[in-house]
Computed example of a mutant assay.
Amino acid sequence: MNTREHHLVELVGTDGSPIGETTVDEAHRAPGRLHRAFSVLLISPDGRLLLQQRAAVKTRFALRWANTCCGHPTPGEAVTEAAGRRLVEELGVTAVPLTEVGVFVYQAGDPDSGRVEFEYDHVLVGAFSGEPSAVDPAEVAAVEWVAPDELTVALARSPELYAPWLAGVVDAWRSSGR
């Protein structure tokens, strides 16, 4: 089993208040346990969004396109700190100031693995130009810059190609006006 599956996550109530902790593995077993997560969306100066295709070895929604990076803070860890760490680990992206633009709750089962995402998801955005410098193939299969309107059309046309939380991430970003 992937060692990340043994990391601790913070269980939360529907209002986001901490109520306990468990492992990533346990939190994602059906029917899922509501836990804190984050989704980062990096935006280029011309307004494009950096997406990643999740690696084939991911235990949930492998090879689906998602926002720039996702993860779970450890219990008590600041969401922005955890998100900055994951940007470095997954993509080699450093020193990007992140701003939280919203939170949403979603629950989705992965038909391929039987695992369940049930997350209180903090959406963070940051400005970034260039390309990731060190993509970790155990996390990311590919990256791509996409125009927001093209992504909206693609999500509606072929939702099965995308992680089930991506539409919520894009909605939170658009609603923020950033």
Rank of each mutant, 00 (worst) to 15 (best):
His6Arg: 15
Ala78Phe: 13
Thr3Lys: 09
Ala82Pro: 01
Tyr120His: 13
Ala95Lys: 15
Ala156Val: 05
Leu50Gly: 00
Val140Glu: 08
Val93Phe: 07
Val153Leu: 14
Gly32Ser: 05
Leu51Thr: 05
Ala127Met: 15
Val24Trp: 04
Met1Ser: 14
Leu166Tyr: 02
Val9Glu: 10
Arg178Ile: 10
Ala30Leu: 08
Glu26Trp: 15
Ala138Thr: 09
Val146Asn: 07
Leu124Arg: 03
Ala147Gln: 13
Thr14Pro: 09
Arg29Gln: 15
Ser176Met: 12
Gly130Pro: 04
Glu5Ala: 13
Asp15Ala: 11
Leu151Lys: 00
Leu50Val: 04
Pro111Met: 07
Cys70Pro: 06
Gly126His: 00
Ala172Val: 02
Arg64Tyr: 03
Arg64Asp: 01
Leu151Asp: 01
Pro97Trp: 15
Leu166Gly: 00
Glu5Tyr: 11
Ala108Met: 04
Glu89Gly: 05
Arg174Gly: 05
Leu11Phe: 05
Thr59Pro: 06
Pro97Ala: 10
Gly177His: 09
Ala62Val: 03
Leu34Asn: 03
Leu166Arg: 00
Pro18Cys: 11
Arg36Pro: 03
Val170Arg: 00
Val93Ala: 06
Leu98Trp: 00
Pro159Asn: 08
Val101Tyr: 03
Asp149Ile: 11
Val153Phe: 15
Arg157Tyr: 10
Thr80Lys: 11
Ser176Glu: 12
Leu41Pro: 00
Trp145His: 06
Val101Asp: 05
Ala108Pro: 02
Glu10Asp: 07
Gln52Thr: 09
Glu90Gly: 07
Leu51Val: 08
Trp165Gln: 13
Asn67Thr: 02
Val116Ser: 02
Arg29Ile: 05
Pro97Leu: 13
Leu49Asn: 02
Leu98Glu: 01
Gly47Met: 14
Arg54Gly: 02
Gly20Ala: 07
Pro111Gln: 09
Glu77Asn: 07
Asn67Lys: 01
Ile43His: 06
Cys70Asp: 12
Gln52Ala: 11
Ala27Gln: 07
Pro18Tyr: 15
Asp110Pro: 02
Ala138Leu: 12
Gly92Leu: 04
Ala127Lys: 15
Leu63Thr: 12
Leu91His: 06
Arg33Asn: 04
Pro18Leu: 14
Leu91Pro: 01
Val116Met: 03
His6Phe: 15
Ser175Gly: 13
Val101Thr: 06
Val88Thr: 10
Gly102Cys: 04
Val101Cys: 08
Thr68Ile: 05
Val101Gln: 02
Ser44Arg: 14
Thr22Ser: 10
His122Lys: 08
Gly102Pro: 03
Glu10Trp: 09
Gly130Met: 09
Ala78Met: 14
Asp171Ala: 11
Lys58Thr: 05
Thr152Tyr: 06
Leu98Arg: 01
Ala154Phe: 07
Val105Asp: 04
Glu89Asn: 10
Ala163Ile: 02
Cys70Thr: 11
Leu161Gln: 14
Glu100Arg: 15
Arg29Asp: 12
Thr99Gly: 02
